[in-house]
């Protein structure tokens, strides 16, 4: 066994800088995914047939194929199809945003449908129109179910984001690979990157628990 972390010490700041890159990437992807997920979930619970069908098909396709394939398709097919040389960041955001939109739409749909049916009836009996009913009555209550699951999705995104390294995006993972190539070390940079991911994920997990505790207390 020949592990020598001293060899990568000069490269540590370089890898650490990847934290912001990764976090920014995850954040933007999550926001995009949340927007798409919200819209899709409204399609799913609404009663317009075509939109429902679209949202279900969308979810099925994005959940039914590998994320890395979606990423590759967007990154390599975009230049070929429309002649636009798509940057890795944009391709990654699109793939992750579109993909997590499918998962988030299910989270939101389930959260909304878990709200007591009586709430909706009470609102309807009071002649409250659909939009304010959703915004003021149903969604605030659904958030209690949705928020913890959303944080889980965020954690998943953080881990899975490492696959954007495959298209050359300079996140934590990619930086570890670069260091590995430059220093002729196989393990040390990867183990270091793994440690960073683990700390990030643990931090988010603790945050999730805190949020859940607060939600439960406000019952």
């Amino acid at each position: 066994m020949d592990l020598d972390f001293l060899r990568i010490v000069p490269s540590i700041p370089f890898i650490l800088n990847g934290i912001w890159v990764t976090l920014l990437f995850v954040l933007v992807s999550a926001i995009l995914g949340f927007l798409i997920g919200t819209i899709l979930s409204l399609f799913k619970i609404g009663n317009i047939r075509g939109l429902k069908w679209f949202a279900d098909a969308y979810t099925s396709i994005f959940r039914g194929t590998p994320l890395i394939l979606q990423l590759m398709l967007i990154y390599f097919a975009t230049p070929q199809l429309i002649g636009y040389d798509i940057p890795a960041f944009l391709a990654g955001i699109l793939a992750f945003g579109l993909n997590s939109g499918a998962y988030i739409s299910e989270i939101i749909r389930a959260g909304i449908q878990a709200v007591d049916k009586g709430q909706r009836e009470a609102a309807e009996a009071l002649a409250i129109p659909y939009k304010p009913m959703m915004k003021d009555i149903i969604l605030p209550q659904a958030m209690k179910n949705i928020l913890p699951a959303l944080l889980n999705e965020f954690i998943t995104l953080t881990k899975e984001s490492a696959i954007v390294a495959t298209i050359g995006f300079m996140d934590i993972m990619r930086r570890a690979q670069v260091v590995s190539a430059n220093t002729y070390t196989a393990f040390e940079p990867l183990i270091f990157a793994g440690l960073i991911y683990y700390i990030l994920v643990m931090g988010l997990t603790l945050l999730g628990r805190a949020v859940e505790r607060r939600l439960r207390r406000s019952e």
Binding site: D116, G118, Q119, E121, A122, E124, A125, L126, A127, I137, P140, Q141
Partner: peptide, 16 residues
């Protein structure tokens, strides 16, 4: 519905 109020067995107050 504006003209017809309804009261339910299980109240259905808005808890939040």
């Amino acid at each position: 519905r504006q003209n017809v109020g309804m009261v339910f067995q299980h109240f259905h107050l808005f808890p939040h």
